[in-house]
Amino acid sequence: MDKTYYNPDDLKKFSKIGEFGKELADKFFSYYGEVFKDGELSAREKSLIALAVAHAVQCPYCIDAYTVDCTEKGVTEPQMMEAVHVTAAIRGGSSLVHSVQMMNRVKEVSM
């Protein structure tokens, strides 16, 4: 067992998850490949969305992969940082909007 939960080399082994369940892994990777192709959104736009989501789910593998992918696709550093601020705004906002529930409850139980 590694001494840390995350090992950068494990990212390269992502495609090996089929070892413990090939059928679902094959279906997942086929779907994954389709999702990131140019469609109504460009592959570049999708990569930027992936980078923002990677920060929301705080997956170091995804942050590594999509930082490089965005860089390769010509996304600039300020554009990447703006995307992460969108993550932060949504994460912050999602906490703050729950304060309405808190406020409602306070008002319910208060004289």
Partner: peptide, 17 residues
């Protein structure tokens, strides 16, 4: 050509930018 240790995206992706 990439300004770092990464590969270029496709010309189709980069040229419009």
């Amino acid at each position: 050509n990439p300004a770092g240790a990464f590969l270029p995206a496709s010309q189709q992706t980069l040229e419009p930018q």
